Amino acid sequence: RKWEEIAERLREEFNINPEEAREAVEKAGGNEEEARRIVKKRL
């Protein structure tokens, strides 16, 4: 699934746990840019 690939990239890029990465992607509706913004806000 594409969402899992996005979550994996976010996890590696921001050094967050898989659960946090998945939550961000879900919140963003699968949009990678939006997920990235969500993760950055949390850091």
Rank of each mutant, 00 (worst) to 15 (best):
I6M: 13
E8F: 07
A24W: 04
V39L: 07
N15M: 11
E32R: 05
E8L: 11
K40F: 02
A21S: 10
E19K: 09
W3Y: 03
P18V: 15
E19I: 06
A35C: 04
E20F: 01
R9P: 02
F14P: 01
A7K: 07
E8G: 13
E34I: 02
E12N: 15
V39T: 08
R9M: 14
I6S: 14
A21W: 00
R22P: 00
A7Y: 03
R22E: 15
R1Y: 13
G30T: 02
R36P: 00
L10K: 00
A21I: 02
E5G: 07
N15D: 07
E33R: 03
A28M: 07
A7C: 04
G30S: 04
E20I: 10
N31Q: 07
E23M: 04
G30E: 05
N31K: 06
P18H: 07
P18A: 12
E33H: 02
E19D: 01
N31R: 10
E8P: 04
K2N: 12
E34N: 05
E33F: 10
N31W: 04
V39Y: 02
E33W: 04
E4Y: 03
A7E: 07
A21R: 00
I16W: 02
R36V: 07
R9T: 09
E34K: 09
N17H: 12
I16H: 00
I6D: 02
K2I: 14
E26C: 04
E13H: 02
R11T: 12
R11P: 02
A28D: 00
F14H: 08
V25T: 03
R1L: 15
N17M: 07
R37K: 15
N31C: 12
R1W: 03
I16G: 02
K2D: 14
R37E: 14
A28K: 01
A24T: 08
A28N: 02
A7V: 07
N17F: 02
A28C: 11
K2W: 02
R36G: 09
E4F: 13
E33A: 10
E20L: 11
I38R: 11
E12W: 03
E4L: 08
L43G: 15
L43T: 02
W3L: 15
A28T: 14
K2L: 08
E23F: 01
E5I: 11
E8I: 08
A7L: 06
K2H: 00
R1E: 15
V39Q: 07
E4R: 05
I16S: 05
E13K: 03
E34V: 06
A35R: 00
K40P: 15
E33G: 05
F14Q: 05
E32Y: 05
W3K: 14
A35G: 04
K2P: 08
A35V: 03
E12I: 10
G29Y: 04
P18L: 04
K40N: 04
E23W: 11
E12D: 01
K41N: 15
E8Q: 13
